[in-house]
């Protein structure tokens, strides 16, 4: 079993990166890999409540993040500095996450086997 970290740094709408990252995360978890997610920079916008991607022709993969616990993906980290940069507070987020500082993210990237950036 590999420790796989999927890092989201791109905004949710506009590109398919976030959706690809989530698909990979769920698929890897289905194959019993130990998956963790990290949201940084514009990627933190994935976590905002009340998104309606279908309104602009996108698929609503944002709702799928709520299913992470069913896939046994329990480690979900968010960069504290990135949240602050975008003026987001914990209360605006749609799923339970662990807010961590830069050092904790560095340590996490070091501790896993692979990091894939989306």
């Amino acid at each position: 079993m590999k420790k796989l970290c999927i890092l989201f740094r791109s905004a949710p709408q506009g590109t398919v990166k976030g959706r690809e990252g989530l698909d990979l995360a769920l698929l890897s978890a289905s194959f019993e890999q130990e998956v963790s997610l990290v949201f940084v920079d514009e990627g933190v916008l994935h976590l905002l409540k009340d998104q309606q991607p279908e309104l602009i022709g996108g698929k609503d993969y944002i709702s799928t993040f709520k299913a992470l616990p069913l896939y046994d993906i329990e480690s979900v980290f968010v960069c504290k500095q990135s949240l602050a940069e975008y003026g987001l507070s914990h209360g605006l987020l749609s799923i339970p996450v662990t807010v961590v500082n830069d050092e904790a993210i560095s340590a996490h990237l070091k501790s896993v086997d692979e990091v894939l950036v989306f």
Binding site: R9, V40, D102, S106, K110
Partner: peptide, 12 residues
């Protein structure tokens, strides 16, 4: 792109 900025933020 912010790739370099983020890399520098989290690199040891």
């Amino acid at each position: 792109d912010n790739a370099l900025k983020l890399c520098l933020r989290y690199a040891c």
